[in-house]
Nucleic acid binder design. Sequence first.
RNA 1: GGGCAAUUAACUCAGUGGUAGAGUGCUUCGUUCACAUCGAAGAAGUCGCUGGUUCGAAUCCAGCAUUGCCCACCA
Length: 710
Amino acid sequence: MTEIPTRFDHTKEAEIYQKWEKAGEFKPKGSGEPFSIIIPPPNVTGDLHLGHALTYGLQDTVARHARRHGKKVLMVPGADHAAIAVQALVEKKIQKEKGLSRTQLGREKFLEEVQDWTAHYLPRVKESLKRFGLSADWGHFRFTMDEHSQLAVKTAFVELYEKKLIYRGEYLVNWDPKLQTAISDDEVLNEDRPAKLYWLKYGPLTVATSRPETQFGDVAIAVNPKDKRYEKYVGQEVEIVLATGQKKKLPVIADEFVDPEFGTGAVKITPAHDKNDFEAGQRHNLPVVQTIDKYGKLTDLAGEWAGLKALEAREPIVKKLEELGLVEKVTDYNARVAISERSGAIIEPLISTQWFMKTTELKDAALKAVKLGDIKFTPKNVEKVYFHWLNNLHDWCISRQLWWGHELPVWHCQNWSAKTKSQKSNPKNNEGFIVALEKPKVCPICGECAMEQDPDTLDTWFSAGLWPLATLGWPDKTAPDLKEYYPTSFLETGQDILFFWVARMIMMSQALTGEIPFKEVLFHGLILDDQGKKMSKSKGNTMDPLALIDKYGSDALRMSLIGGNSPGLPQRYTETKLLKYRNFVTKIWNAARFVASTGNSKSQIPNPKQLDETEKKFLEKLSRLEESNHKDFKTYKLGLALEELYEFFWHDFADQLLEYEKKVLLESADETRKAQAEAVLQDSLKRLLVLLSDFAPFLVTEINQTMFDA
RNA sequence: GGGCAAUUAACUCAGUGGUAGAGUGCUUCGUUCACAUCGAAGAAGUCGCUGGUUCGAAUCCAGCAUUGCCCACCA
């Protein structure tokens, strides 16, 4: 025995992966039932965390299991352009390296910088996926900004627009003043922060507000219709005095949304800068008066405070109001502040012209698919969260004022103006733009201009929502992959992107094809640090999965993340657990080394009738393990399947059977008996290695190749 | 304010109706003949609390407590 070392050299993993690829192991093979997995594409930010190791570990384990059970497996790899995230990073980079903002650099140059960025990070992303051992077919690799993806996105946009599921309009949106773009509701985080509530005298009434600086945009005062205190004012106008000293008349309206218990029960209405007020304004036909611009600064309406940032102007304005005797009191208050998930900036609700998807019309089909069980969620309780979200859904703002992202297939007439509009030169088009895959040669609106493409880009999640379709060849409806692998079989992802991604894929797929995008979804939970705290860069408690792979090996990391964990539950990362599975890798390696040393007869167990009780019991138990392993996979109890495998291999196989047969080999004089012992050991080991190959593919491949020439 | 989950050995977690399990740690012993990243034996838990269903509950139901996560238009 030989030159085989006493431990598995995990630095060989890259080499093993290359062998797999060369042998075409991950190409869909055979005539089995198609089983397709589209991986959640990691961002080209160059940022991989333990969650990636977990999700790719889980889905690869499922893929390998399906493959060895005769399925024709297609696993599609890819990467996401991550518009807002990458743009923010590149902006930071050029600011640091060149001292330039993106506007100083210009759109074209900026996009070149982004191209450089992706050119640098795409290969790294691919490399990382390979280090996780992902058994994906690289011939199917897709980037969300590649040519085909762009065609899919444009086609989807045009089709959805034609189905009237996409519309353009002027509404109050979440504006990120730092990134200078609108963002969707899902990209906004709410934080409770201590704040002040200002009780301002508005004519004969008092209103309580947390944002006195928006008073220049006030257009009404609202009270609850059932509130007797204010009955006599409803329908009347009251005259108020602003901080500028100007007088202004505001109508008093009655609306159910006003809580009589809060504050004075009277609330100032600023439709341009508050979501509630905007909606109330629409109900009551009130004008929208903007007093904060897209840079978060006060407009001319604010008189001497014009040009100041809203927050900076607050105290001076209050001071002035106090001097005018218009502040009744100031109280402490816990305000909820809307924060941009990506930039951390305080969101400014802003009226602007944006593109929206009518998700409200798509939700019924999305609800139905899960309710009827066409799409199955594991764990099942995720369904409730999904239903709740869908039932409270608002239309989705899909346009972004970013530069990096999919451009809209929208073409504006350059001669379009109020004048053209009034002439009604083209009664069919009263918006000044058309939506089409290609830019028209001649403007169909004015008949002469060259038309200009809409400067906006799309929310990253728009292209992500098309991912299962785009990766399989759509919009070519006759694409062979689409026919064979769509709807896809299985999706594994984090619960944190249930709304962002999973729900949108379901809605968009159904809107475009009438079909669901996938049949099964497995959700994993958050990975926490060893203190049970959420991992985040700012806390500095993140772990680099690639560094852990360098140190302990990919198989060990994968098993440590999967083993003994229930579907969907959060788990703590501990080095102890990683060591447990690293030791398991060594144990398997050495048990195999021993069995290989007993000879390499490929013989089957000679005569099952000659087996003694110990052997029979062991083999029966092994059969039961194989059954329960397969059963556990069907319900995605991979953590349990692996733990059982661990227990069985270590204690039943290595500690019991192996020691038992070792004794036979050392002490028995009966050559037939010895041959039987060898055969039982080899047969059992090989069956166990098959089960282990789902979880520890690198290790099992190396064992088979170095010890059993298989 | 609403929703979802978790609570099991000192620590990290499995276990979902039938006499409590693993890894780490701890105690004792063994072993250079696959593996010290080893083996054998052991100590250690009234399975958060209170009720209920059941022949039988860590497991099912109700309530409570604590912790975590998600959602939400009281300005």
